[in-house]
Amino acid sequence: MNIFRLTADMTHLMSVIVLLLKIHTIKSCAGISLKTQELYAIVFTCRYLDIFTDFISFYNTIMKVIFLWTSFSIVWYMRYHKIVRRSYDKDQDTFRHVFLMLPCLVLALLINERFTFKEVMWTFSFYLEAVAILPQLVLLQRTRNIDNLTGQYIFLLGAYRALYILNWIYRYVTEPNYVHWIPWMSGLVQTLLYGDFFYYYFLSWKNNVKLQLPA
């Protein structure tokens, strides 16, 4: 495990903690897209199908459990918690899951490392993760007021994949036979989707003003 990979995982973990902090302390999910959160729950379910069959390390298993558990609890809070669910902007969060999931599934069936159920699901999870942020970005554009925790959550989520790119470069250079085109390409697309957001995030940080995306 290299420093880029560890930092990436910790950034991912921090993004989840920031979101849960918002939900637990402010009892609010305002500005958060349930569609994106549901897509993440699907992403981790499909990717971690090997959790019971392939033991990699204690760290690996624990992190998988954390990402599965937190993604489903966030969805539960947003849908069913009697206070939290009231702050959900249902009318603004209109992106349809199927328009993201169907093309990803077709692509996973066509382009994969091996045509088995587990492999196709693993591949599908990467394609879907790459675009899962789109409902959130659309919601962000529509929401005029982006609170600090929401901004930080999305920044950390984007930073996590960007750091994974450094990890992939590092591993490609240092490890023989380390080639994973599917995570690389979808990870690159995923990071590029954050480009616009990063730009405005840094601008607001530099000028010390509240984050606002142009209409």
Partner: peptide, 10 residues
């Protein structure tokens, strides 16, 4: 061809 067994990333 990728090494299928090296899926140690999250």
């Amino acid at each position: 061809v990728a090494n299928i067994s090296s899926k140690d990333e999250l």
